[in-house]
Design a protein around this nucleic acid. Structure first.
Lengths: 377, 377
DNA sequence: TCAACATAGTTCATAATATGAACTATTGAC
DNA sequence: GTCAATAGTTCATATTATGAACTATGTTGA
């Protein structure tokens, strides 16, 4: 069994990359003796490995790294149809993946997922899977087992975690899609050493999550990061009704769904690629729709930056949007509404929308337990 | 010297109120034996005291409480002129206070503050002061000693913490005014057991701070909670220029200064009390100005609630504003733009604007060190 | 080529801290 | 007045980190 000390070492190496025992002792404020003994255990269990020594003056230091093959995880994304199931290692690398129809019926859903998991586990031969994570577009209870509400699947109080756990015999965690995404980014991504960053994804809906003080910002009722219903269109003459009951929410203008609707109302094609092509050809109405959508997104992003002050905002979206007027308006509008900061270069990082990111983030939920331990951050 | 265990006990009692040894053991997940021994030390040092036993079935339990007189603190507010200096006990109760002119010159400022501190210390006779905290309207460095920038005082990189510490011989902490306010609320206030709440104050400027996951939300560059420059007026025809260089910031419409300016532009008196009286008498222009200001404040508050999801938002403002159309519009606009939550009753708590709150919050910075220890939360 | 030096990492006796189990203490209930 | 129930203490022990002395392994430069 691993102790708190072991998990300290593991999480430090995961967050900060390979370091020698001496560097670890310095960073963690522990004695060299303690680190030495903890590392010995982790090496014996083949969770860590020693890398090639680094030469300086004096005895070379031996960087220690987390072994990717030390543990394997299943990540499930129900963010969209089809559902995606991935098998990742302890570095978050995807080794195998499957797509399957996303069923709203719990029994059918779990059965097909379990079949996929069984298939993926067979590919591992002797190695064992340590846990399962699931990302879904909805609210999740505090125990991270039960889905409280999911509009896309029509779920209310569905204990998908419990059922998956019983059927697979593996520990299971459930998480909101945006949260899973940012938790994956925090554990495996380039921003892993940053304690304050945000992730936004623009799909049919808009999702947002924030890491603050090194931890996920959940809020009192688990509703933090609710960007999609930010009151952006305040001119009530133009505010469209939103499914939430209010008017003028961000998602009524800036989501893919909203853009498609606006295009069709204007007699234009509703597909993003088509619309982007028209805009690139200077079609005035296409330009107007995409500019309005991007600028609205930028305004909401400015609110986020002003209130939460992240070091980076990762924006995941369709490349057609990113490279056209939408992305441009988003960036411009954001930057024109935030206070000048010394480091605002590259604060907004665009990234292609990859459905696998959600599954990968889901897998990281289980990996997190392996790396941070039972009472981990 | 106190150990981590001692501080755990102290901070739990401070946060959750008096509890018996058994309750503490349960809450902290420690053994009764450990709690027993730690509590014995704290009783011997007269930091804790035993309250009258509570009878149930079985041996009565003895609630333990933090002794208010166990430590004393100085709190300084440079939030406004005059500066305020208070002497508080370990419960945050103000036992003495002084007002003095706020000097922009560092030497004069510190000298007059030190005179006041000396005077307050004399009133304590044998008891000793444990630390000094200062709240000021500006940015503070990470070491909580240096003021990086303060427009009101014209300061840049002023090491007021170091100077105060040297002159008083007491450990000193500096903090932004809004941050000091919420940290005081967290340590001493009614919301102390809530890990997610926000505080907004409306004065000549607008300040905001947030507690998230039980910790102050500082953000990457220490700029989190920057509500006053939220881009609220998006209709550029009506957006007023702001001192920050942008247009349409919240503080150009909702702050006392902005309201006064708007009133004077309309040929009305700039004093809030006067304006509020006119509005109460249904004066159309007064009503319009205050409604617009309050609604803008409400819109910004809705953004905050959607993004950060606090359990409560404490709004400190002039009673004349609170009881009139401003307060009404604020509340109404906020509630109409947030997703319905199960618990939204009393989410917004109005409170009178009390300048002493800043000084009290400042004192809490030092108290925090006493209660949470050197590497406390 | 080899001594001097510098840094990395280990060993081990010890200190600090928390634990479990058995103990005492103090009440209410019958 | 005895018993059940809960609070709190004691103490031997387990766990975990520490400091100081040690070994290991390289570079540097005369």
């Amino acid at each position: 069994m691993l102790s708190t000390g072991h998990y300290l070492i593991l999480s430090s190496l995961s967050r900060n990359g390979p370091e020698s025992r001496s560097e670890l002792a310095l960073r963690l404020g522990m004695s060299k003796a303690a680190v030495s003994s903890l590392v010995r255990d982790l090496l014996k269990q083949e969770i860590l490995c020693e890398q090639t020594p680094v030469h300086g003056s004096g005895r070379p230091s031996v960087p220690l790294a987390v072994r990717a093959e030390a543990a394997w995880f299943i990540g499930i994304s129900l963010q969209d149809d089809p559902a995606i199931v991935v098998l990742t290692d302890l570095h978050g690398t995807v080794h195998d993946r499957m797509e399957l129809p996303r069923h709203a019926d719990l029994e059918t859903c779990v059965s097909s997922l379990c079949d996929a998991i069984t298939h993926l586990r067979k590919g591992l031969r002797s190695a064992k899977v340590s846990g399962v994570g699931t990302a879904l577009p909805g609210f999740v209870a505090n125990d991270r087992q039960t889905c409280l509400a999911c509009a896309a699947l029509g779920w209310r109080d569905v204990d998908i975690g419990g059922v998956l756990s019983k059927r697979t015999g593996l520990p299971t965690w459930i998480e909101n899609d945006a949260n899973a995404l940012i938790l994956g980014e925090q554990l495996f991504g380039a921003l892993r050493s940053s304690p304050d960053f945000s992730v936004i994804f623009i799909s049919n809906g808009i999702g947002c999550a924030n890491i603050v003080n090194g931890r996920l910002l959940r809020g009192y009722a688990g509703g933090a990061g609710e960007m999609s219903h930010a009151p952006i269109v305040t001119d009530m003459a133009h505010a469209l009704p939103c499914r939430c009951g209010n008017r003028g929410c961000l998602e009524t203008v800036a989501s893919l769904l909203a853009i498609g609707n606006a295009a069709r109302r204007a007699g234009l094609p509703g597909e993003i690629a088509e619309l982007a092509r028209l805009a690139a050809g200077a079609h005035p109405e296409a330009l107007s729709i995409l500019h309005h959508a991007g600028a609205s997104m930028g305004l909401a992003t400015a609110h986020l930056i002003q209130l939460i002050d992240p070091s980076h905002v990762v924006v995941m979206l369709d490349p057609n949007l990113r490279d056209g007027i939408y992305g441009h308006a988003l960036q411009r509008e954001t930057e024109s509404h935030i206070l000048r900061r010394p480091v605002s270069r590259g604060m907004i990082q665009f990234r292609d929308f990859e459905p696998d990111s959600f599954a990968c983030g889901a897998a990281s939920l289980a990996a997190r337990y392996f790396i941070f331990g039972p009472d981990g951050v």
